[in-house]
């Protein structure tokens, strides 16, 4: 039976982020959280492999203990077990820190065949955690995957990588890590029975004392400000003189030079 690990991130629901009009500061005190969108595709892909080939699925995340709710969410989407690396200090981690913690936690889970990650997270979208994690585990990595086929009995997968100018089809020896794009599948909406069953599934709570402390951050965030778009509310008709007026307005605003 295929042993699949999916990694996911619990992120702020961007729909809830508000921007203070004068300071452009992000107002986060009433935000909700969700499983990062592409990570949902990764979990769904694992669930589909489970249906097709039979597979065990462990969903792994690194987060502060307050994110506990993410476990039932992931478990309701098909994972058999959750692995929760948690500590109050695990907020705003850099990709290298997250990948190191994931690698340590995954090593503790024993053998595996396939690790599935989202291509990037809904909040930062650095696209780094997957490849760094593969490197730390010393396994091959396929990114930008929008179709994945497991070749039974051969311990390999065929992955279609959607690149800017072409689709590349690669064969990857397992164990391997694959990062998926959103068009690989449509994540299912958990049924009520799946939601209720999630609470009965096992969770490995991994606190930092069982792992190495994460490395020091290499970046310093000086500020995060909301991008604002001020509308000028100018209207132009389609006649020649209006086009001149439109061009004039664009020049004046510095949009064109």
């Amino acid at each position: 039976m295929l042993k699949v690990i999916t990694c996911f991130k619990w992120v702020i629901d961007e729909a809830d982020v508000k921007v203070d009009a004068s300071s452009r500061r992000l107002i986060l005190d009433r935000v909700g959280y969700k499983i990062s969108l592409y990570d949902r595709n990764a979990i769904e892909e694992a669930a589909l492999l489970q249906e097709k080939h039979g597979a065990s699925i462990v969903a792994v995340t690194v987060a502060p203990p307050t994110a506990k709710q993410c476990l039932k969410d992931a478990l309701s989407r098909g994972a058999d077990k959750a692995c929760f690396v948690n500590d109050p200090s695990l907020v705003d981690l850099e990709p290298t820190q997250t990948a190191a913690l994931l690698a340590a936690a995954i090593k503790g889970q024993g053998d595996f065949d396939l690790i599935l990650c989202g291509e990037g997270s809904s909040d930062l979208y650095t696209q780094q955690v997957g490849p760094i994690l593969a490197e730390k585990l010393g396994i091959p990595c396929g990114t930008y995957v929008n179709k994945l086929t497991v070749i039974e009995g051969e311990k390999r997968v065929i992955a279609e990588r959607k690149l800017d100018d072409c689709v590349e089809i690669v064969s990857i020896q397992l164990p391997a890590l694959v990062t998926v794009l959103p068009d690989i599948n449509t994540p299912r909406i958990p049924t009520l029975k799946q939601v209720l069953a999630a609470g009965k599934k096992p969770v490995d709570n991994i606190t930092l004392d069982k792992l190495e402390s994460p490395s020091e951050p290499g970046l310093e965030t000086t500020s995060i400000l909301g991008a604002t778009m001020e509308r000028r509310r100018l209207k132009f008709g389609a006649e020649a003189e209006n086009i001149r007026a439109a061009v004039g307005a664009l020049l004046k605003e510095g949009v064109i030079t």
């Binding site: 506990k68 039932k72 969410d73």
Partner: peptide, 13 residues
């Protein structure tokens, strides 16, 4: 947590 998840799933649906 279950009730919150149900709300989220119904909303998505």
């Amino acid at each position: 947590e279950e009730q919150q998840l149900v709300r989220a799933s119904v909303r998505e649906f």
